[in-house]
Amino acid sequence: MTFGSDQFRLKTGLAEMLKGGVIMDVINAEQAVIAERAGACAVMALERVPSDIRKEGGVARMSQIRIIRDIMASVSIPVMAKVRIGHFTEARILEALGVDYIDESEVLTPADEEHHVDKHDFKIPFVCGARNLGEALRRIAEGAAMIRTKGEAGSGNIVEAVRHIRTIVKEMKQLTVLSKEELFREAKNLQAPLELVQYVAEAGKLPVPNFSAGGIATPADAALVMQLGAEAVFVGSGIFKSSDPEARAKAIVKATTYYQDPEKLLEASEELGEAMPGLDISKMQESELMQVRGW
Protein backbone atom coordinates (compact mmCIF):
# COMPACT_ATOMS: atom_id res chain seq x y z
CA MET A 1 0.00 0.00 0.00
CA THR A 2 1.04 3.56 -0.50
CA PHE A 3 -0.16 5.42 2.60
CA GLY A 4 3.20 6.93 3.45
CA SER A 5 3.79 8.05 -0.15
CA ASP A 6 4.19 11.72 -0.97
CA GLN A 7 1.13 11.58 -3.17
CA PHE A 8 -1.09 10.16 -0.41
CA ARG A 9 0.25 12.70 2.10
CA LEU A 10 -0.65 15.53 -0.28
CA LYS A 11 -4.15 14.09 -0.62
CA THR A 12 -4.75 13.84 3.13
CA GLY A 13 -2.93 17.18 3.51
CA LEU A 14 -5.69 19.03 1.71
CA ALA A 15 -8.25 17.30 3.94
CA GLU A 16 -6.24 18.52 6.96
CA MET A 17 -6.69 22.08 5.66
CA LEU A 18 -10.47 21.65 5.53
CA LYS A 19 -10.76 20.60 9.18
CA GLY A 20 -13.02 22.65 11.40
CA GLY A 21 -14.79 23.91 8.29
CA VAL A 22 -18.02 23.56 6.34
CA ILE A 23 -18.15 22.15 2.81
CA MET A 24 -21.32 23.35 1.10
CA ASP A 25 -23.27 21.86 -1.81
CA VAL A 26 -23.81 24.41 -4.59
CA ILE A 27 -25.48 24.07 -7.99
CA ASN A 28 -24.16 27.20 -9.72
CA ALA A 29 -21.56 29.96 -9.52
CA GLU A 30 -23.94 32.35 -7.77
CA GLN A 31 -24.48 29.90 -4.89
CA ALA A 32 -20.74 29.19 -4.77
CA VAL A 33 -20.01 32.88 -4.26
CA ILE A 34 -22.61 33.06 -1.47
CA ALA A 35 -21.04 29.99 0.16
CA GLU A 36 -17.52 31.43 -0.04
CA ARG A 37 -18.68 34.77 1.35
CA ALA A 38 -20.43 32.98 4.22
CA GLY A 39 -17.16 31.24 5.17
CA ALA A 40 -17.35 27.81 3.48
CA CYS A 41 -13.91 26.14 3.43
CA ALA A 42 -14.83 24.37 0.15
CA VAL A 43 -17.80 23.86 -2.14
CA MET A 44 -19.24 20.71 -3.68
CA ALA A 45 -20.37 21.35 -7.25
CA LEU A 46 -23.43 19.36 -8.28
CA GLU A 47 -26.39 19.57 -10.61
CA ARG A 48 -29.14 19.02 -8.07
CA VAL A 49 -28.93 18.98 -4.28
CA PRO A 50 -29.75 15.60 -2.70
CA SER A 51 -33.31 16.56 -1.64
CA ASP A 52 -34.15 17.35 -5.30
CA ILE A 53 -32.49 14.15 -6.52
CA ARG A 54 -34.70 12.32 -4.05
CA LYS A 55 -37.84 14.15 -5.19
CA GLU A 56 -37.25 14.02 -8.93
CA GLY A 57 -35.85 10.49 -9.13
CA GLY A 58 -34.23 9.18 -12.31
CA VAL A 59 -30.51 8.62 -12.73
CA ALA A 60 -28.27 11.13 -10.96
CA ARG A 61 -24.88 11.52 -12.68
CA MET A 62 -21.73 13.63 -12.49
CA SER A 63 -22.58 17.32 -13.02
CA GLN A 64 -22.37 19.08 -16.33
CA ILE A 65 -18.79 20.20 -16.87
CA ARG A 66 -19.87 23.73 -17.71
CA ILE A 67 -21.40 24.14 -14.24
CA ILE A 68 -18.29 22.85 -12.47
CA ARG A 69 -16.06 25.04 -14.62
CA ASP A 70 -18.16 28.14 -13.82
CA ILE A 71 -17.95 27.37 -10.12
CA MET A 72 -14.16 26.82 -10.28
CA ALA A 73 -13.78 30.18 -12.01
CA SER A 74 -15.95 32.05 -9.51
CA VAL A 75 -14.38 31.11 -6.14
CA SER A 76 -10.87 30.84 -4.69
CA ILE A 77 -11.66 28.03 -2.22
CA PRO A 78 -11.30 24.32 -3.15
CA VAL A 79 -13.98 22.90 -5.45
CA MET A 80 -15.13 19.30 -5.11
CA ALA A 81 -17.42 17.35 -7.43
CA LYS A 82 -19.23 14.02 -7.24
CA VAL A 83 -18.92 10.89 -9.35
CA ARG A 84 -21.12 7.80 -9.29
CA ILE A 85 -19.80 4.87 -7.21
CA GLY A 86 -17.43 2.83 -9.38
CA HIS A 87 -17.54 5.26 -12.32
CA PHE A 88 -13.81 5.70 -12.86
CA THR A 89 -14.32 7.38 -16.22
CA GLU A 90 -16.33 10.22 -14.68
CA ALA A 91 -13.45 10.48 -12.20
CA ARG A 92 -10.88 10.70 -15.01
CA ILE A 93 -12.89 13.53 -16.54
CA LEU A 94 -12.94 15.44 -13.25
CA GLU A 95 -9.21 14.80 -12.85
CA ALA A 96 -8.60 16.26 -16.31
CA LEU A 97 -10.76 19.23 -15.37
CA GLY A 98 -8.63 19.74 -12.25
CA VAL A 99 -11.20 19.79 -9.45
CA ASP A 100 -9.57 19.70 -6.00
CA TYR A 101 -11.41 16.70 -4.53
CA ILE A 102 -13.66 13.97 -5.95
CA ASP A 103 -16.56 12.59 -3.91
CA GLU A 104 -17.37 9.03 -4.94
CA SER A 105 -20.88 9.45 -3.68
CA GLU A 106 -23.89 7.35 -2.78
CA VAL A 107 -26.00 10.44 -3.51
CA LEU A 108 -25.60 9.74 -7.24
CA THR A 109 -26.93 6.56 -8.84
CA PRO A 110 -24.23 3.86 -8.55
CA ALA A 111 -22.50 2.85 -11.79
CA ASP A 112 -21.09 -0.40 -10.39
CA GLU A 113 -22.81 -2.52 -7.77
CA GLU A 114 -19.70 -4.46 -6.77
CA HIS A 115 -16.65 -2.24 -7.21
CA HIS A 116 -15.59 1.18 -6.13
CA VAL A 117 -13.02 3.26 -8.01
CA ASP A 118 -9.34 2.34 -7.48
CA LYS A 119 -8.54 5.71 -6.00
CA HIS A 120 -4.80 5.13 -5.55
CA ASP A 121 -4.53 5.41 -9.29
CA PHE A 122 -5.52 9.11 -9.33
CA LYS A 123 -3.59 12.26 -8.58
CA ILE A 124 -6.76 13.98 -7.32
CA PRO A 125 -7.80 13.00 -3.78
CA PHE A 126 -11.10 11.22 -3.13
CA VAL A 127 -13.60 11.38 -0.29
CA CYS A 128 -16.01 8.49 0.26
CA GLY A 129 -18.97 7.88 2.53
CA ALA A 130 -19.11 5.24 5.26
CA ARG A 131 -21.62 4.04 7.84
CA ASN A 132 -19.27 1.98 9.95
CA LEU A 133 -15.59 1.29 10.51
CA GLY A 134 -15.35 -1.65 8.12
CA GLU A 135 -16.79 0.39 5.26
CA ALA A 136 -14.49 3.32 6.10
CA LEU A 137 -11.39 1.10 6.09
CA ARG A 138 -12.39 -0.58 2.80
CA ARG A 139 -12.67 2.85 1.18
CA ILE A 140 -9.31 3.89 2.64
CA ALA A 141 -7.76 0.66 1.34
CA GLU A 142 -9.02 1.67 -2.11
CA GLY A 143 -7.27 5.02 -1.70
CA ALA A 144 -9.84 7.41 -0.18
CA ALA A 145 -7.95 10.28 1.50
CA MET A 146 -10.94 11.47 3.51
CA ILE A 147 -13.96 9.69 4.96
CA ARG A 148 -17.32 11.31 5.57
CA THR A 149 -19.98 9.49 7.50
CA LYS A 150 -22.94 9.11 5.16
CA GLY A 151 -25.96 10.07 7.21
CA GLU A 152 -29.02 10.19 4.96
CA ALA A 153 -28.49 12.85 2.29
CA GLY A 154 -31.36 15.18 1.45
CA SER A 155 -33.39 14.13 4.50
CA GLY A 156 -32.86 17.18 6.72
CA ASN A 157 -32.81 14.60 9.51
CA ILE A 158 -29.65 14.25 11.60
CA VAL A 159 -30.46 10.84 13.07
CA GLU A 160 -28.49 8.79 10.53
CA ALA A 161 -25.44 11.07 10.65
CA VAL A 162 -25.43 10.64 14.43
CA ARG A 163 -25.80 6.87 14.14
CA HIS A 164 -22.88 6.64 11.69
CA ILE A 165 -20.41 8.86 13.53
CA ARG A 166 -21.23 7.18 16.83
CA THR A 167 -20.79 3.76 15.25
CA ILE A 168 -17.40 4.56 13.74
CA VAL A 169 -16.09 6.22 16.91
CA LYS A 170 -17.31 3.33 19.07
CA GLU A 171 -15.81 0.69 16.77
CA MET A 172 -12.48 2.52 16.78
CA LYS A 173 -12.46 2.69 20.59
CA GLN A 174 -13.19 -1.03 20.79
CA LEU A 175 -10.16 -1.84 18.63
CA THR A 176 -7.81 0.03 20.97
CA VAL A 177 -8.39 -2.44 23.81
CA LEU A 178 -7.99 -5.65 21.80
CA SER A 179 -4.90 -7.85 21.92
CA LYS A 180 -2.80 -8.48 18.82
CA GLU A 181 -4.32 -11.87 18.08
CA GLU A 182 -7.83 -10.48 18.48
CA LEU A 183 -7.07 -7.92 15.77
CA PHE A 184 -6.63 -10.69 13.16
CA ARG A 185 -10.13 -11.87 13.88
CA GLU A 186 -11.50 -8.33 13.98
CA ALA A 187 -10.03 -7.63 10.53
CA LYS A 188 -12.08 -10.58 9.32
CA ASN A 189 -15.24 -9.32 11.04
CA LEU A 190 -14.80 -5.80 9.71
CA GLN A 191 -13.92 -7.11 6.22
CA ALA A 192 -11.04 -4.67 6.22
CA PRO A 193 -7.28 -5.01 5.67
CA LEU A 194 -5.36 -6.11 8.78
CA GLU A 195 -2.79 -3.34 8.34
CA LEU A 196 -5.49 -0.65 8.63
CA VAL A 197 -7.18 -2.40 11.55
CA GLN A 198 -3.80 -2.44 13.35
CA TYR A 199 -3.30 1.24 12.58
CA VAL A 200 -6.65 2.18 14.13
CA ALA A 201 -6.01 -0.06 17.17
CA GLU A 202 -2.72 1.77 17.76
CA ALA A 203 -3.78 5.34 16.92
CA GLY A 204 -7.42 5.27 18.05
CA LYS A 205 -8.41 7.11 14.90
CA LEU A 206 -8.62 6.69 11.13
CA PRO A 207 -5.43 7.21 9.07
CA VAL A 208 -7.32 9.95 7.16
CA PRO A 209 -9.52 12.84 8.32
CA ASN A 210 -13.08 11.88 9.29
CA PHE A 211 -15.86 14.33 8.39
CA SER A 212 -19.63 14.13 8.74
CA ALA A 213 -22.42 14.48 6.15
CA GLY A 214 -26.03 13.69 5.41
CA GLY A 215 -28.90 15.46 7.17
CA ILE A 216 -27.21 18.51 8.74
CA ALA A 217 -29.81 21.32 8.61
CA THR A 218 -29.11 23.60 11.59
CA PRO A 219 -26.13 25.11 13.46
CA ALA A 220 -26.99 22.80 16.35
CA ASP A 221 -26.82 19.76 14.03
CA ALA A 222 -23.33 20.77 12.88
CA ALA A 223 -22.14 21.28 16.47
CA LEU A 224 -23.64 17.94 17.49
CA VAL A 225 -21.68 15.88 14.97
CA MET A 226 -18.51 17.86 15.76
CA GLN A 227 -18.96 17.03 19.45
CA LEU A 228 -19.41 13.37 18.53
CA GLY A 229 -16.01 13.34 16.81
CA ALA A 230 -16.42 14.69 13.27
CA GLU A 231 -13.51 16.90 12.15
CA ALA A 232 -15.53 19.00 9.67
CA VAL A 233 -19.01 18.93 8.12
CA PHE A 234 -20.60 18.68 4.70
CA VAL A 235 -23.93 20.46 4.32
CA GLY A 236 -25.95 19.55 1.25
CA SER A 237 -29.58 20.56 0.89
CA GLY A 238 -29.60 22.14 4.36
CA ILE A 239 -28.35 25.54 3.20
CA PHE A 240 -29.84 26.33 -0.19
CA LYS A 241 -33.18 24.63 0.61
CA SER A 242 -33.68 26.83 3.67
CA SER A 243 -35.54 30.16 3.64
CA ASP A 244 -32.41 32.35 4.07
CA PRO A 245 -29.39 30.45 2.70
CA GLU A 246 -26.72 33.08 3.38
CA ALA A 247 -27.70 33.59 7.02
CA ARG A 248 -27.93 29.83 7.56
CA ALA A 249 -24.57 29.23 5.88
CA LYS A 250 -22.87 31.81 8.12
CA ALA A 251 -24.54 30.38 11.20
CA ILE A 252 -23.43 26.82 10.43
CA VAL A 253 -19.85 28.01 9.84
CA LYS A 254 -19.86 29.75 13.22
CA ALA A 255 -21.37 26.72 14.96
CA THR A 256 -18.75 24.40 13.46
CA THR A 257 -15.89 26.54 14.83
CA TYR A 258 -17.50 27.14 18.23
CA TYR A 259 -19.12 23.72 18.63
CA GLN A 260 -18.04 23.54 22.28
CA ASP A 261 -19.31 27.01 23.22
CA PRO A 262 -23.07 27.15 24.06
CA GLU A 263 -23.14 30.98 24.09
CA LYS A 264 -21.78 31.13 20.54
CA LEU A 265 -24.17 28.37 19.47
CA LEU A 266 -27.04 30.43 20.86
CA GLU A 267 -25.88 33.44 18.82
CA ALA A 268 -25.60 31.24 15.72
CA SER A 269 -29.10 29.83 16.22
CA GLU A 270 -31.00 33.14 16.40
CA GLU A 271 -32.94 34.71 13.53
CA LEU A 272 -32.35 31.98 11.02
CA GLY A 273 -35.70 31.63 9.26
CA GLU A 274 -37.07 28.23 8.34
CA ALA A 275 -34.87 25.14 8.05
CA MET A 276 -35.39 22.78 5.13
CA PRO A 277 -38.32 20.38 5.57
CA GLY A 278 -37.21 17.10 7.15
CA LEU A 279 -38.12 13.48 6.42
CA ASP A 280 -38.91 10.73 8.90
CA ILE A 281 -36.35 8.10 7.88
CA SER A 282 -37.97 5.33 9.93
CA LYS A 283 -41.03 5.58 7.62
CA MET A 284 -38.94 5.23 4.44
CA GLN A 285 -38.46 2.07 2.41
CA GLU A 286 -34.93 0.66 2.21
CA SER A 287 -35.01 1.31 -1.56
CA GLU A 288 -35.45 5.04 -0.86
CA LEU A 289 -32.28 5.22 1.25
CA MET A 290 -29.06 6.51 -0.29
CA GLN A 291 -26.84 5.34 2.57
CA VAL A 292 -27.19 1.64 1.63
CA ARG A 293 -25.38 2.28 -1.67
CA GLY A 294 -21.70 1.33 -1.51
CA TRP A 295 -20.24 -2.07 -0.63
Binding site: R37, A38, I77, V253
Partner: peptide, 14 residues
Protein backbone atom coordinates in the same frame (compact mmCIF):
# COMPACT_ATOMS: atom_id res chain seq x y z
CA UNK B 1 -2.41 27.62 10.70
CA UNK B 2 -3.11 26.39 7.20
CA UNK B 3 -6.70 26.27 6.07
CA UNK B 4 -8.86 28.59 4.03
CA UNK B 5 -7.83 32.22 4.46
CA UNK B 6 -11.28 33.44 3.36
CA UNK B 7 -12.98 31.37 6.08
CA UNK B 8 -10.55 32.53 8.77
CA UNK B 9 -10.79 36.15 7.66
CA UNK B 10 -14.57 36.06 7.90
CA UNK B 11 -14.52 34.55 11.39
CA UNK B 12 -11.75 36.94 12.55
CA UNK B 13 -13.95 39.87 11.66
CA UNK B 14 -17.23 38.38 12.85
Amino acid sequence: PGGESTTMLRLLRL
